[in-house]
Computed example of a mutant assay.
Amino acid sequence: MSQVAEFYIPNVGNVAADQGFTGPNGTQYGAGWLLNPPEVEAAALGVLPLVREEKPDHDSNTQYLREQQVGAVISYVVEDIPSEEIEARLAGLAVAAAMQVDLAAEQARMRFITPGAGQAMVYQTKIEEAARWIAAGSPPDLSAYPFIAAEVGLTAPSAAELVALWQTMESGWRTVAAQIEAVRMTGKNAINAAAAGGDPAAITAALNAALVTLAAFAP
């Protein structure tokens, strides 16, 4: 798609060639007038082609690119961003990245357990009840162990097999949870180190690495 030519008109401003405009004296000029204007009238208005100088290279993390216009010429000036603003940007970027890592870690955990605080309490109560049952010598009377009593015959045929199953599941979950936590902490530490080093690209790289690893966890 070709770019539409632009013109500068004193006391009017910048106008695209295919747009209409109001002249300094209030005269209305229709859309497209600038594409082929009468020479005398264009000269009287002071119509000039708008010139945009080439943008200089700059580091957007540490420098602003300011646009300025003098007459029909638009030029660009590179200015250093104040150090305190750079630090604030890095801090904000690091906080946002850390929050994304925390969220991804929680999503990874939820792929292995049923969501909900109530369900988490049930799981924990089962494990504690299983430990009490074993510590008591694995008694056949399950009246003091309501979760075991309720699930025997459903998930496993005996209390011993049921408790063994719960413990196996708990062990597997603890292993996965520890791995997820290691990735979470490693990622956040890398993000903080990148922020301390003033490297926004490294913050993004550390975030992406953590997200990719956490996304790979699956039951």
Rank of each mutant, 00 (worst) to 15 (best):
Y64E: 02
A42S: 13
A164Q: 14
A96H: 09
S83V: 15
R174P: 11
E106F: 05
A131R: 11
N61Y: 10
R89I: 00
V70G: 01
A177P: 07
L35I: 06
P200Y: 08
G198N: 08
P49M: 03
L154P: 00
T213R: 11
D80E: 15
A205E: 09
P82C: 07
R66I: 11
G46F: 06
V183P: 06
R174D: 15
A178M: 12
P24I: 02
K188T: 10
V183H: 06
F217G: 13
R184V: 06
A205T: 13
I148T: 03
E170H: 15
G197Q: 08
P24S: 06
A178W: 09
P10E: 08
P140Q: 07
A130W: 10
A42H: 02
P49N: 03
E128H: 02
L50Q: 12
V78A: 11
D80S: 14
V183R: 09
A202E: 07
N61F: 11
T175L: 13
T62M: 07
S60L: 05
I180H: 06
A195Y: 08
A96I: 08
M1D: 15
M121P: 00
K55M: 09
A72R: 04
T168N: 10
A91G: 00
Q69P: 06
E87V: 12
M121V: 09
A130C: 15
A44P: 00
A178C: 04
W173R: 08
Q68A: 15
L103D: 14
L35Q: 14
A209K: 11
A88W: 05
A156D: 01
M110F: 08
V122H: 01
E39H: 02
R132H: 14
A177V: 11
V47T: 05
Q124C: 00
V176H: 01
N192E: 15
L211Y: 08
L65T: 07
Y64R: 05
T125Y: 00
A216P: 13
E106H: 12
A105P: 13
S83Y: 09
I180N: 09
Q100I: 09
L65P: 06
L142Q: 03
A195Q: 13
A195K: 07
A149C: 09
A150E: 11
N208H: 15
T204V: 15
